[in-house]
Computed example of a mutant assay.
Amino acid sequence: MNKRTFLVLLALSAAVIQAPAQAQSNSRPIRLVVPYAAGGPIDVTARILAERVKDVLGPVIIDNKPGAGGNIGADIVAKAPPDGLTIGIAATATNAVNPWLYSKMPFNSATDFAPITQMVRVPNVLVMNAAAAERLKINTVADLIRYAKANPAKLNYGSGGNGSAGHLAGELFKKEAGIFAVHIPYNGGSPAQLALVSGQVDFNFDNLATAAPNIRSGKLKAIAVTTLQRSPSLPEVPPVADTLKGFSVDTWWGLVAPAGTPPDVIAKLNKAFVDALNAPETKTRFASLMAEPVPTTPDQFGALMKSEMAKYEKVVKATGAKVD
């Protein structure tokens, strides 16, 4: 065997050895960290998308890491290697509210994540006890504001606790409407809704998916949704923004990677998940959760998180709410 033939064979051998190693690297599963418990809407939507992108990205393993209002799971993503193999969910709480609600955060919401795409928007809904709404002749946001101004401090509203989405929505509503209503915090969203249904409180800002059964049964009256536009899930109910211009307190979540993840990796992830979000089957399954798919570019999702963080800074500071 001459020297030239030997070198060719050596190069071919190296290629054969390298190819399986490269294939193995590409087959490594992606870890999608969900910073909330299994079974909730965020977890369910993540699992739906993980199933839809597996043919493009390979296996996507859901890793639930709940705790500290979502901060534990979000911190895992923030500190993961920026190689595209660990991604996670960024939500209203983790990336817009918690930075102002917690005195110490384990990560920086503004700098520690690379946005991939928004996934979902879920409306909140302003609901009243149906009997109370009929008795007080309140059918619209304007009616509620008019009654509150004519009857100072007679209205109250419930929420799932200080700093919860319902609390912050209520405080923003009071500020924008120029009214006063007593806030009554409960230990979670379910006790707050039970208090509303039983007439202990007058109105709540609740997640539409949670409130929908009692709206359909007639126990609660939907006054308005908190998205800027009407919700496809409740098309007959107008947005608060029709009366209070710009009012928007919907719940959103999306996908992020650790800061420093290469742009080409972000682009690949974005395309796969946006295609999955645009699939008719995804829209149908999300609709059962009262969730609207919202595929975006990375820049659009980054801009949303930045604007939401600025909005909630004012709201949280105005309420004085703190968790620790």
Rank of each mutant, 00 (worst) to 15 (best):
L269T: 00
A93R: 13
F107M: 05
F247I: 09
A192S: 12
Y102E: 12
A50T: 01
E171Y: 06
N129Y: 09
L255R: 06
Y186L: 09
P293E: 12
G39D: 05
A272R: 01
P99K: 06
F6L: 15
W252N: 06
I87Q: 05
R52Q: 10
I179A: 07
Q193C: 02
D143S: 04
V274K: 08
S164C: 02
L57P: 03
L208P: 02
R28T: 12
I30A: 06
P262R: 15
S109T: 13
V316W: 00
A177N: 00
V53T: 07
Q229C: 07
V53G: 03
P81G: 01
T296G: 04
V56H: 10
L136T: 05
M290Y: 13
P123L: 03
T94E: 12
L168Y: 01
Q118K: 12
S307G: 06
L155S: 11
A310P: 04
K221Y: 06
K175I: 12
I138D: 00
T92A: 11
V53E: 00
V53R: 01
A267P: 12
S109P: 12
I215D: 11
N129K: 13
G246P: 09
L49T: 05
S231I: 05
F180Q: 12
I138C: 09
E308G: 01
A192H: 06
T284C: 07
K245E: 14
L277C: 06
T319F: 09
T297E: 10
G88D: 00
F205M: 07
Q22A: 14
V316Y: 04
T282P: 03
K104I: 13
G73W: 01
